[in-house]
Computed example of a mutant assay.
Amino acid sequence: MAGQRRYQRALDDLEGLIIARMFELYKAVKAAIERYNAAADAMTPPKDHLSWEQVVEYTFLADFDLLCEGREDIRGEPWALPSGRAAMDQHYKLLRADEEIKRLNIEIRRFVTYMVDEEAFLLHHEERLVAESKPGLAHQVGRHRMECARFNVLHMVSLGKLSTEKGFTGSISPGVSVAMWRCIQCR
């Protein structure tokens, strides 16, 4: 419970900081829009005004038509074009691909181990509840175990298909969880 409380507090702090940062950014952008609109009014002839909604709609620099009036029109730069952004995204994904494959190989094995351990845990407690003459609770644990098992079958089918793909380097066999390893060491 203490760990859960620490986690919740940390999450609340993070959420508060993110929201505070978003408000600061909102205020800064609103102030910049007001300065721009004042400067646009002073031009001869006056330039068009910007609204918050217009600025928020500009997803990429290339969509920001106003930039063509700057000292340099950066909208034509390779890094500002959609194809350039796509190429950069692809480049950085390729740079991290080997690292991602190693990480996924670990996570796949952890996931399979978790599914096996969860099944064993629920079965153990279902049997324990039956032995303690608590059939109602045992039934509920059994229903939960069966529901999890249905999803686990679907996950294992997907992982089985993945494991047959060319270049798959991971394993879909379960490992030994830390909790299980400790039990083995205690014997």
Rank of each mutant, 00 (worst) to 15 (best):
L154F: 13
D117K: 06
P46N: 07
I19Q: 04
N105A: 02
L94T: 13
R5F: 15
C183F: 04
R9M: 10
R5L: 15
A87W: 04
Y7P: 02
R110D: 01
K134M: 10
G3P: 11
Q90N: 15
L104T: 00
I172N: 08
L95P: 03
D98T: 07
K30F: 15
M22C: 13
S171D: 09
F168M: 08
E119H: 08
A39R: 03
F151M: 11
A39V: 01
F60E: 10
L154R: 04
E57L: 02
F151D: 11
R150W: 12
Q140M: 08
R128A: 00
I19L: 14
Q8V: 07
G16L: 14
V29T: 07
L129W: 12
K30P: 03
T169N: 03
N37K: 15
E15F: 07
F64N: 05
P78G: 01
S173W: 07
A131D: 14
E15M: 05
N152Q: 02
E118D: 11
S158I: 04
G175H: 03
V176E: 00
D13H: 12
L104N: 03
D12G: 04
A86P: 01
T59K: 14
P174Q: 12
Y114L: 06
G142H: 08
L129R: 03
P46T: 08
C183H: 05
V112S: 00
D89V: 06
L162C: 02
L162I: 00
S177Y: 03
L81G: 00
L11S: 06
A120M: 05
Q8C: 09
S163Y: 09
I101V: 09
Q90F: 08
L66Q: 12
L137S: 05
R9T: 11
E15P: 07
E126W: 03
K47N: 12
K161C: 10
T169H: 06
Y26M: 08
S177P: 07
Q90C: 12
L17P: 01
G160S: 09
A120F: 09
S83F: 12
A138Y: 07
L129K: 10
I18K: 05
Y7N: 11
L50I: 05
Y36C: 04
M22K: 07
Q8P: 00
F111C: 05
F60A: 01
A31D: 15
A38E: 15
L14V: 07
S171H: 07
M88R: 14
L104D: 03
H125C: 03
E69T: 04
S83E: 12
E34S: 09
Y36I: 04
Y92H: 14
G70Q: 10
A149R: 00
H144L: 11
L159P: 01
M88Q: 10
A20D: 04
Y114W: 07
C68G: 12
D73I: 02
L14D: 13
F121P: 00
M1K: 03
M180C: 10
A97N: 14
E132G: 07
L162V: 04
V130N: 11
F23E: 11
L154K: 02
A120V: 02
A131Q: 14
L50K: 04
